[in-house]
Amino acid sequence: MQSSSPKLRPTAWDSLIVLAVIVLAIGTAIVFYGGLGGGDHITVTITHRGETVEKVMLEALNEEKTVTIDGTYQLTVVLSRDGVWVSESNCPSQDCLHTGTVSRAGQSIVCLPEQVVIRLDGKSDGPDIILG
């Protein structure tokens, strides 16, 4: 049932695993963040239990905008040109508050207990120009 003698000291082959993990990390970073460009044009999408409740283009905001999410728990999301943050939440984990302000494409704020996802999308799927 057991292998003869387990190797307890690092071997040269271990570095292959390290390398593989690094490559995977860089690879996923490129796939996820690569197409996002400079992040001048950020579209914020707030979903609550799978439903989109708000879609806002950050640069189109002239003043701070507040979005309240009401479910088992209540969250207050603040959107401004400089970024997005959760200002209040009575969820048990408080992770969304710990996240602080996010402002770059690809970033997100997640509240698992209330299933809220606030995601920032960059150029690739957002508009380049706002008209009107």
Binding site: T43, E54, K55, V56, M57, A60, L61, N62, K65, L79, G126, P127, D128, I129, I130, L131, G132
Partner: peptide, 24 residues
């Protein structure tokens, strides 16, 4: 909108939502 983006796609223009002016 002049020409295309560097990836050859047309420029994406958001027509502002008149009732929610931060949205498209």
């Amino acid at each position: 909108a002049h020409g295309t983006k560097s990836d050859g796609k047309p420029w994406s223009v958001a027509i502002r939502d008149p009732q929610n002016t931060a949205g498209a």
